[in-house]
C-alpha cells in the first residue's frame, strides 16, 4: 500500500464507519425497537463504566479474575510446557492426554467447576486458567522440542550447566513459540471470563450484560459489549507491544529465513 493513498484510505474508512453509524441512528429514530437504542444512550451507558458503582461492580471484578486466571495460565503453562518439552522422551506419554484436554470444549467443565468450587471467584479463575493453559503448554512444549541441537551443543562446549542452558538457550529460543501460544490463550481467557460470569456471578461485565438484557436495558447491553471489545483490543495491543520488544530479533530472523 503506497503512502499517497494512505490518507484517502483513511477517508474511505471514516466514511464507511460514519455511514454505518448514521444508518443505525436513522433506523433507531424512525423505527424505534427495543434492540435498537439511540447512539447517545449507548454512549452515555458506556461512559458510566468509568466512574462510581459500575467500575467496581462490573469492570474491576472481571479484570481481576481475568488477570489472575490468565497469569496463572501463562506462567504455569510455560513452566510445564518447557519441562515436558525439555524431557523429550515424555512427549509420547503425555501428548494424547494434553491434546484431549485441549480439545475438550472448556465450557463443558463449567458445571464441574461450579460443583467443586461453588459460585465463587475461585471457580471463575479456575475456569479461565483451565481454558487458556493448554495452548500455552503445547506451544512451549513444541518450541522446546524444536530447539536446534547445535545450539545446545554450543552451550555444552562452552561449559554451561543445565540451569544455565535452560535460561540462556532454551528459554530465549522457545519465546516465539510461547508468545504464539499466549496469543491464542488470550482470546480463550476472555471468552471464559465472560462465560463464567454469564452463567454464575453477581458481578462482573458478563453478569452486567445478561442482567441488562433481562431488564431490556439494551443500551447497557451494547455498551457492555463495546467495553469488552475495547478490553480485548487493548490487551491484544499490549501483548503485541511486549512481543515486539522481546522478539525484535525473531521478526528479522524469520524474514531473512523466508527470503532464502
Amino acid at each position: 500500500m503506497s503512502r499517497s493513498w494512505g490518507t484517502s484510505a483513511l477517508l474511505w474508512q471514516l466514511c464507511l464507519i460514519g455511514m454505518l453509524l448514521a444508518a443505525w441512528q436513522v433506523s433507531a429514530t424512525l423505527w424505534p425497537a427495543p434492540y435498537l437504542p439511540k447512539l447517545q444512550t449507548v454512549l452515555a451507558s458506556f461512559l458510566n463504566f468509568f466512574h462510581g458503582n459500575l467500575l467496581f461492580s462490573a469492570v474491576l471484578p472481571s479484570l481481576y479474575r481475568f488477570a489472575i486466571g490468565f497469569g496463572v495460565a501463562v506462567l504455569l503453562g510455560s513452566f510445564i510446557g518447557l519441562t515436558l518439552g525439555y524431557l523429550r522422551g515424555l512427549n509420547e506419554w503425555v501428548r494424547p492426554i494434553l491434546e484431549y484436554l485441549r480439545f475438550l470444549p472448556t465450557v463443558a467443565i463449567l458445571p464441574a467447576a461450579l460443583l467443586l468450587f461453588g459460585a465463587t471467584d475461585g471457580m471463575r479463575i479456575f475456569v479461565i486458567a483451565f481454558g487458556s493453559i493448554f495452548p500455552v503448554i503445547l506451544a512451549a512444549m513444541d518450541g522446546a522440542r524444536r530447539v536446534d541441537q547445535v545450539l545446545i551443543d554450543v552451550a555444552r562446549v562452552n561449559g554451561l550447566t543445565i540451569p544455565q542452558r535452560i535460561f540462556r538457550v532454551i528459554l530465549p529460543a522457545v519465546l516465539p513459540a510461547i508468545f504464539a501460544g499466549i496469543r491464542i490463550a488470550l482470546s480463550i481467557a476472555l471468552v471464559m471470563m465472560v462465560i463464567s460470569e454469564l452463567i454464575a456471578a453477581n458481578d462482573g461485565l458478563g453478569h452486567f450484560i445478561l442482567r441488562s438484557q433481562r431488564l431490556f436495558q439494551t443500551a447497557n447491553v451494547y455498551a457492555g459489549v463495546l467495553l469488552l471489545g475495547a478490553i480485548g483490543f487493548v490487551l491484544t495491543a499490549c501483548m503485541l507491544a511486549i512481543e515486539g520488544r522481546f522478539l525484535a530479533w525473531y521478526k528479522g530472523w524469520r524474514g531473512a529465513a523466508d527470503a532464502i
Partner: peptide
C-alpha cells in the same frame, strides 16, 4: 577445546548480537 560448527546459520543464537554471541562462552 572449542568448536566451529558446520551450519553457521543454525549455530549462532538468533536473539543475540554479534557482540553477545561472541561473549557467550565468557560467562564466568
Amino acid at each position: 577445546l572449542s568448536i566451529v560448527f558446520q551450519d553457521y546459520s543454525r549455530a549462532l543464537f538468533p536473539w543475540l548480537t554479534v557482540r553477545q554471541n561472541v561473549a557467550f562462552g565468557l560467562h564466568h
